[in-house]
Design a protein around this nucleic acid. Sequence first.
DNA 1: CCGTCTTGTGAGAGCGCTCTCACGGTGAGA
DNA 2: TCTCACCGTGAGAGCGCTCTCACAAGACGG
Lengths: 334, 334
Amino acid sequence: MPARRLPTLEDVAARAGVSRATASRAVNLDPRVRAQSRIAVEAAVTELGYRPNRAARSLVNQEVDSIAVVVPEAEDRVFADPFFASMLASITQRLADSPVQVLLAMGQPGGRQKIERYLRGGYTDGAIIVSHHRDDDLSDVLHETKLPAVYVGRPYAGDVGIPWVDVDNRSGAALAADHLISQGRRRLATIAGPQDMAAGSDRLTGWTEALQRAGLDSGLVEFGDFTSASGAVAMERLLERAPDLDAVFVASDLMAVAAMHEVQSRGIAVPEQIAVVGFDDTHAAQLTRPPLTTVINPVGELAGRAVDLLLQLMQGENVDPVVLQTAMVKRTSG
Amino acid sequence: MPARRLPTLEDVAARAGVSRATASRAVNLDPRVRAQSRIAVEAAVTELGYRPNRAARSLVNQEVDSIAVVVPEAEDRVFADPFFASMLASITQRLADSPVQVLLAMGQPGGRQKIERYLRGGYTDGAIIVSHHRDDDLSDVLHETKLPAVYVGRPYAGDVGIPWVDVDNRSGAALAADHLISQGRRRLATIAGPQDMAAGSDRLTGWTEALQRAGLDSGLVEFGDFTSASGAVAMERLLERAPDLDAVFVASDLMAVAAMHEVQSRGIAVPEQIAVVGFDDTHAAQLTRPPLTTVINPVGELAGRAVDLLLQLMQGENVDPVVLQTAMVKRTSG
DNA sequence: CCGTCTTGTGAGAGCGCTCTCACGGTGAGA
DNA sequence: TCTCACCGTGAGAGCGCTCTCACAAGACGG
């Protein structure tokens, strides 16, 4: 509740000596207003510090107002993983030219209710849910409120009636496997992501299938949780289990960078002795020495498609999930 | 423009067999409604998938609706720097319990107009500007529109009539200097940030002053732009200029991590031969080997204070800039 | 000199909601 | 039996804006 009343269009009109209708037209750059009136209105706007009341405006125009980007993850997780920042930036950029606003809703696991309240509260016209995790209860809320929503990342629970966009994690992992095999690597390991997330299990599935097709042992698997620290630990275990391994596919760049450091700190040469391939193609992949060979996770396109899907959904159209194909960036680590 | 009209409170009321007023009360949990009416309304809400129209609601309530977090930086910059993600998360968290929404506005340098249009367009009730850069033109817009706003990071231009929150960069840098000096280090260098940003120049000033107080040479300075790559390059130059240096203070952790890798890759021991101290205390500081000694940049508190200031401002109160004192985290790198 | 068209403007409705005010119904107390 | 308080409710105003419609004033052709 602001102390002083903000100037309204009525005030502007009075000061400019025109009617509210003309003031509205001038503010909205309607070409029918006489130059003289327009200038008067502009002056009044400046003098009064008038800013149109967005609520009133969108009430009349029935316009799409805002979409929420929901990140049901703990804050520290969001800090550490460039995926979220990147996603957010891409979504924002995609909507930069449109009048649609981007709302942000994050939530620590314990505070799921907050997000739920948020979605139920009619605070937004649509939602993009960005998370690796399964969100069963969130799906219920979305269903119940009929709020248009799109998942980024295939929901682990399977078809929940809400469209999603994702990269083809399975064939991406297979790409990495085939690449390493074609190099002549024969003792291959993987650091997989959490198996309760689609991205984690799909990448492991793709990897395993590819190794089996090639008749190679696919048993050398350790698991991480997509964090840097977990990557280092998993690599340590892998080296203990199989000191003779000659290649490792790591299910995320964040883990891959840590794993590579782990390998190098033991005096093992990358890629000569052990090839390292990551997944995501984050900025960090270019900064390591040697630069990291990795599978592209096209975050920008993912974001764009999610936005498109959501906008279509909000227009009442039906949409199907989108699966983006991926590719490898061959650098020098593997 | 949605294909089908969304249900309004009127529809809910009709279906529930009550008046619009009662429906409104039921939706807003007014205790005066009879249980029977409330249940009927709730049923109607569910059946129709009713969601209150936020525009109409806030039009009536004159309520504070949203604040914008403005990041006038290129997208790739925002990706790479955990400061922004961290800031965003903290601000969101701070407002999680309030009905105030967080809007996101990022902008590549070329697209400053977009942000300007955004701020002018009355899309929001207040703004927190998060940037290291000077934003002279942004200040003008804020002045002109009288939009309540707070800067995170002291504006380089000096007093622009807009309050800000910042950490005491000068004394933070002095802390680092004194720490290194008290260890007996005598050949001290610094990798400074860009000098057209307050954070960059203040940290250098504090550093230089402290060295001079101790009667030490403060001429060993190289500059970076707060990115990882620039830190490595600056360190390289420093080692060329002064192979005998025994300590380096780096004006950001991102640069410090890169600088430390650079040092170590030459077989120089940290901290035995060269001590490395960073600034920010980001997550990455804990992951290096050895872990990085650094000056705390209390992002969470900065965010909280910025939000508080802005809310006060929006209530019509006058506020003063806030300067947060800082401290060092002594780990093992220096 | 009259009708017609164009241009700029104002009056007023109405977007969906909340809140005030008034009122009918009920039960307690006189 | 009547009064009065109180509870739950409905009618209706009005938030600030845009847009439709009507209309005045001039331009223009016949």
